[in-house]
Amino acid sequence: MSIEVKNVRFAYSRGKTVLDDISFQIPDGEFVCLLGPNGVGKSTLFKCILRLLTGYSGEIFISGVDSGSLSAKELSRRVAYIPQSAAAIFNYTVKDTVLMGTTATVDGLHSPGKREELCADQALELLNIQDLKDRMFTRISGGERQLVLIARALAQQARILLMDEPTANLDYGNQLRVLEKIKALSQNGYTVLQSTHNPEQAFWYADRVLAVHGGKLIADGAPEKVMDSALLKTLYQIDVSIESLHGGKAHVCLPKKLLS
């Protein structure tokens, strides 16, 4: 499924404009990283796509359908949201947490049945975390929790995954493990839009980078093409040098101070 965002503007009441004429299109199965400093409106953009905020002007199409014409239930079958993993207030098993994703497919007042249980099991298997099934969500590691939240989104049967800094709270190893799983999903046809604070993640995993600054989209394209020291300087006010390794296979960002 594709996302098309067309001339979207958004301002919180009495506040300044957060999103100023943002337009982009993401085709099926693309892994896109959204870069931008804190408070630039990355989360606001997500909320507009998820219709948690409706006061925007412009249009958002999900697979060519105006998102405003979809019911909350219909939208949830197309777009799933994966938050940063946070400790839950109440204690559910991993299986029940994933099962919650199937809610949109359950009619009215019913509880999930056999079909939904199967769907949750498949989501766990796809991410290879079926061993966690009976563990409590609050008792597993941060990286495992993030994978469970992704499994929950898969159980929702949406093909578009919006991830708000999914690796922000994870240790180094878990960051890479989670990103590899996300990458594999996009290769299986899932469309992924992920916001991140780490430009190297975009180099290593993303097909494409969107950079937002001052409410405007200032870069859009393949990471190797659009990500340069000038862009990172604009986004983060820091001087970095981008080094190409292994004959252009990989790129790393290094602080210029370190090199001088």
């Binding site: 998820l50 909350a72 949830s76 949201y81 839950a88 109440f90 919650m100 949109a104 007042l109 509880s111």
Partner: peptide, 23 residues
């Protein structure tokens, strides 16, 4: 009793619950 599964979903963050298609 009828809504007890949905009450589970309401224990999540409000935005998360909404994106799962719940009113």
């Amino acid at each position: 009793f009828l809504l007890r599964w949905k009450i589970n979903i309401l224990t999540l963050d409000d935005d998360e619950a909404k994106t799962m298609g719940i009113n």
